[in-house]
Nucleic acid binder design. Structure first.
Length: 413
RNA sequence: GCGACCUUAGCUCAAUUGGUUAGAGCGCCGGUUUGUGGUACCGGAGGUUGCGGGUUCAAUCCCCGUAGGUCGCCCCA
């Protein structure tokens, strides 16, 4: 079927139960976000390539080989967003949103990454995103993590995920720790996995969460960040942990948790599950105090997270199927014409209604069941002549004649 | 980017060591006397076996390529 219309690899057509799951996740996000005072923001789906290159880091995989970049007709290099943080930070600068700081923002939508598709991993995927820009206080870290925790709890995932928490320290800490790690791993370089030998050059921190047994043996005794934390960084992390405890948000200190993207400082966290195979991270984030500066702005503290909507969708219980309350069943041509008016009356009255317009009476009743209707409005020549309709309660089977003008009220009761 | 497995009706799956009209369930359409349902029974439509090539008298089944999916690595949500 070479000619059969085919969708682009790694994209999805979300429908039926999948669509209901997706919607349930977004609805929960929108509900909880309001409880925490996060305002919605819409930023472009594409930006100048430079926005992502400068903020995420030229050497990262995301930038160096996973972006959907193209030249537009004006000759500008444009990139489909691979994540939300860079675009939101850019918007913060472009629009002078410093005046609103600290600014709590929530966004959701599509993001794009050219990767090998797997379960829970797509080339066009969808994220929930939360950011607090312009707040250096550890309380903001606590708040945004509490937000994430409540969201996951309301999605029924409290027992399926674990919050892993770590700090990568401030710039000074990070530099010192990084040097120590490079020194330590360089001595055993030859015994590391090929991937980790490469990481040693590009991103030594990531050796810590390697899955390779050869690496794990050395990771155990690798320099710990706690020994390199400055007094300030250590104090910050203490306050975050205390705040989480006060907020009843359970977490597991995970010393090997590091961030792949360059802009992170201090707090790093991930909600991880064992129910999605290799795609364990369901929500991840941290503090990125260095990012806005990297975009050419003033030093601006910020903290945020992103969650994969598809991954969350796969974990939650299936939502109840959507139903339509009323099925209007006309029999005969005159009734079919009259049904239009009945439908309009019901719908404008706030009642979900559909018309069964195909097949004999039996088929139409079956249609009523199929859409989950609890009431059938039957319209035939008899009823029409009397200006009435037969209203049938599909649970009890009870039928009553109701004047057409009273239909909406009668069904609402 | 690397490795492995998978790909048969709209959906989920069958088809004996390659053998001649590729089956079932669900769904869909129609019917079981003319306006009453979620069950049952009967009938029907629907497939160039992902696509391309090769081996063979013969391929859904073997080989190669290609596209997509799945699992792992990498990376990450």
């Amino acid at each position: 079927m070479a000619d059969k219309a085919q969708r682009v690899r790694g994209t999805q057509d979300i429908f039926g139960e999948d669509a209901a799951r997706f919607e349930a996740v977004v609805a929960a996000f929108d509900r909880v976000r309001k409880l925490y005072g996060f305002r919605t923001v819409q930023v472009p789906m594409f930006e100048f390539t430079e926005v992502f290159a400068r903020s995420i880091g030229e050497t990262t995989d995301v930038v160096s080989k996973e972006m959907y970049s193209f030249e537009d007709r004006g000759g500008e290099s444009i990139t489909l967003r691979p994540e939300f943080t860079a675009g939101i930070s850019r918007a913060y600068l472009s629009n002078g949103w410093q005046q609103h700081a600290p600014l709590k923002l929530a966004a959701w939508g599509a993001a794009f990454r050219y990767e090998r598709p797997q379960k829970g991993r797509y080339r066009q995927f969808h994220q929930l995103d939360a950011e607090i820009v312009g707040a250096a206080e550890p309380a903001s870290d606590v708040e945004i993590i509490a937000f994430a925790h409540q969201l996951l709890s309301e999605l029924g995932l409290a027992d399926k995920v674990v919050l892993q928490l770590n700090t990568v320290g401030d710039a000074e800490t990070r530099t010192a720790w990084r040097e120590a790690l490079i020194g330590y791993f360089s001595k055993v370089r030859g015994e590391l996995s090929a991937e980790s030998q490469e990481r040693l050059e590009k991103n030594p921190l990531r050796i810590l969460d390697s899955k390779d047994e050869r690496d794990k043996a050395f990771v155990v005794d690798a320099p710990k960040i706690d020994a390199y934390l400055t007094a300030e960084a250590g104090g910050f992390f203490d306050k975050v942990q205390a705040g989480l405890q006060a907020s009843s948000v359970p977490f597991a200190r995970t010393e090997t948790l590091v961030r792949g993207l360059d802009y992170y400082r201090h707090t790093a966290f991930e909600f991880v599950t064992t129910h999605l195979g290799a795609q364990g991270t369901v929500l991840g984030g941290g503090r990125y105090d260095g990012l806005i500066e990297a975009l050419g702005g003033p030093p601006t503290p910020a903290v945020g997270w992103a969650a994969g909507i598809e991954r969350l969708s796969m974990l939650i219980e299936a939502p109840a199927v959507e139903t339509v309350d009323v099925a209007v069943i006309p029999m005969g041509e005159a009734a079919e014409a009259a049904a239009m008016g009945v439908l309009q009356q019901l719908r404008t009255g706030g009642i979900a209604a559909e018309q069964a317009w195909r097949g004999n009476m039996k088929k139409r009743m079956a249609k009523a069941d199929a859409i989950g209707a609890r009431v059938a409005v039957i319209l035939g020549d008899d009823e029409l002549a009397a200006g009435e309709a037969t209203v049938k309660d599909l649970k009890t089977g009870a039928q009553t004649r109701v004047a057409l003008t009273d239909l909406t009220a009668a069904i609402k009761n």
